[in-house]
Design a binder for these strands. Structure first.
Lengths: 154, 154
DNA sequence: ACATCTGTAACCACCGCGATTACACAACCT
DNA sequence: AGGTTGTGTAATCGCGGTGGTTACAGATGT
């Protein structure tokens, strides 16, 4: 799993948690994450499907968090954004004439399932509130809105 | 982590565990995994560096397992073969003018480390002997060797 | 010497991902 | 209604990683 979608999703939710009821546009979120608004909207769409976020369209629109931050576990966020399993198996079928090749996939499947389970349980023990707390010591973000030009990282 | 190197590595070690002291060539292993011998040798090189396997070069060469199967945990195999962490972070630096952007990486780092730890511990609880046991119910593999060279009781 | 097999470099094709552009649609405002 | 703003989504591009393949030097037993 080399994707950073999960990191982006947690970042987005952390910003939304800080803003509470105030809607935040994808462009503003893109400004904080430092990426393109479309990338944000793609992740936002996944979070909507999972019921973690609600988005209002049209003028003066924006997204807001759909639940209390302490009721959103990072395990949920992970599953919302990374539906594929973290482990890959043989791309080609192993040699069925070899007894190892015949049975290895089943054996590996059990191991992978156990590891995936452990991973998700570890994530499930943390909530978005834990993240927001670590981040929230500072003052509210100034000038998240109104990013007229697209500039590279400072 | 979409790579299947870990699956290949476990497969290779399972075959070696079955063959015990008899050396198995990369070509024979490739026949069981159903891939190219070079792919096998690449993984074999990593397993050698980790001290899990010993290889003899030259004519009539081959690889054999370097420890008892019940003393090789899958966590070791995982670390030998997948040195990179399973979680990716922001490819670009987040916006440092946003308090979330400033702190999110540290917060995510802690979470990721915990999840990675849980994953590796889950793998560490299984050994190669567990895999070999699930696989080993059947009879020894016939005709794993491709070329009619040395005939070794398999 | 010879045959065999490993180690490694080099190269290719493919896939997934993030970034970007473009455009249709929705909602709010005057 | 019309204009403005912002979402949803498709299409495309470039990049990096990965498995597959070929090629070749070096090691080693017979």
């Amino acid at each position: 799993m080399a994707s950073c979608r999960f990191a982006f999703a947690v970042h987005i939710l952390a910003v939304l948690a800080r803003h509470g009821a105030g809607g935040v546009t994808s462009q503003a979120l893109a400004g904080s994450v430092n990426t393109n608004p479309v990338v944000i909207r793609r992740i936002l769409a996944q979070l909507q499907r999972a019921g973690l976020v609600s988005t209002q369209k049209g003028a003066g629109a924006g997204s807001r968090i759909a639940r209390q931050p302490d009721e959103i576990s990072l395990g949920e966020v992970y599953r919302a954004v990374e539906p594929a399993p973290a482990f890959g198996v043989h791309p080609q079928q192993p040699n069925q004439r070899c007894c190892v090749g015949r049975e290895i996939q089943r054996a590996l499947g059990e191991v992978f399932a156990g590891a995936q389970e452990a991973l998700e349980q570890a994530l499930a023990r943390r909530t978005l509130a834990d993240i927001a707390e670590k981040v929230g010591a500072a003052e509210p973000t100034p000038s998240l809105r109104a990013r007229p030009t697209k500039r590279k990282a400072s």
